[in-house]
Computed example of a mutant assay.
Amino acid sequence: MNLRCLSLVAAATLTAALLSSCTSGKNLPPLATAGPVDLQRYSGLWFEQFRLPNSFQNDEATAEARYTPQPDGSVRVVNTEVRPDGTRKTATGTATAVPGSRNSRLRVKFDGLAAIVPAAKEGNYWIIRLAPDYSAALVGTPDRKFLWLLSRDRNLTPARRNEYVQEARRQGFDTSRLLSRP
């Protein structure tokens, strides 16, 4: 299977997984999100610090995400998985804010085969906690199956990471399963 085809399959899997995850978890209160998010400030390069395991990311890989605001108000998304051997896998797509969410909930649709899978009405990228200076963001899905901590720096201090782990736990995520960036 060539790299382009593999990337399309990965993007389709990611979209399907995120779409299926957007129903509220059983016996959990609604997932709280961050206050208003300025998508201009949110744009730029982010580094994954930790995540819950999922079927579309290699457990040993790390990820980078670049968000670029577009003139129509959407955000271009470029996710890059970096594997231990240095190989990279990239998926691109578009994020749009869910009306009434103050930009804290986004619908992300990836290009290629994944474009045929519609994004959930309530969004599949919820910004749960955002540092006031936009240096770190905790992102997840309302069913608590998917979770990422992103930061502007490649590495956060253990104390800072722990703040976000505690928030994720408080919000009902299974933090015992977190995969951390080396």
Rank of each mutant, 00 (worst) to 15 (best):
T13L: 15
T13D: 04
L14Y: 09
L14N: 07
L14I: 06
A17F: 13
A17G: 08
L18H: 11
S20E: 12
S21Q: 10
C22T: 11
C22N: 15
T23L: 07
G25L: 07
K26D: 04
K26M: 03
L31K: 06
L31T: 09
A32G: 10
T33L: 05
T33A: 13
G35S: 15
P36S: 08
D38M: 08
L39T: 03
Q40S: 13
S43V: 00
L45E: 08
W46F: 12
F47Y: 15
E48F: 09
E48D: 12
F50Q: 00
F50P: 03
R51G: 07
R51N: 07
N54G: 07
S55Y: 09
S55F: 04
F56D: 06
F56W: 14
F56S: 04
N58C: 07
E60T: 07
A61E: 06
P69R: 15
Q70N: 13
Q70V: 00
P71C: 03
P71I: 01
P71Y: 01
G73L: 10
R76Q: 14
V77E: 04
V77R: 06
V78R: 12
N79S: 11
N79W: 11
V82A: 08
R83L: 11
R83E: 05
D85Y: 11
D85E: 13
T87M: 12
R88S: 04
R88W: 01
R88Q: 14
R88N: 03
K89G: 06
T90S: 15
T90P: 12
A91E: 10
G93L: 02
A95H: 03
T96D: 02
T96C: 03
A97P: 11
A97R: 07
V98H: 09
P99T: 03
G100F: 14
G100H: 05
G100N: 13
G100A: 06
R102L: 11
R102C: 08
N103W: 00
N103K: 01
L106S: 12
R107H: 04
V108A: 09
V108F: 04
K109A: 11
K109I: 10
K109C: 06
D111M: 12
G112Q: 09
L113N: 02
L113W: 14
A114V: 04
A115G: 14
I116T: 10
P118N: 10
A119Y: 00
A120N: 05
A120W: 05
K121W: 09
E122R: 14
E122I: 00
E122Q: 10
G123P: 06
Y125V: 01
R129A: 15
L130F: 12
P132V: 05
P132C: 07
D133F: 04
S135A: 13
A136L: 14
A137I: 02
A137V: 05
A137H: 07
R144V: 02
K145I: 02
K145N: 11
F146T: 01
F146D: 00
L147I: 06
L149M: 11
L149E: 03
L149I: 07
L150C: 02
L150E: 03
L150S: 05
S151Q: 05
R152M: 07
R154G: 13
N155W: 08
N155I: 06
L156T: 08
T157Y: 02
T157C: 00
T157G: 12
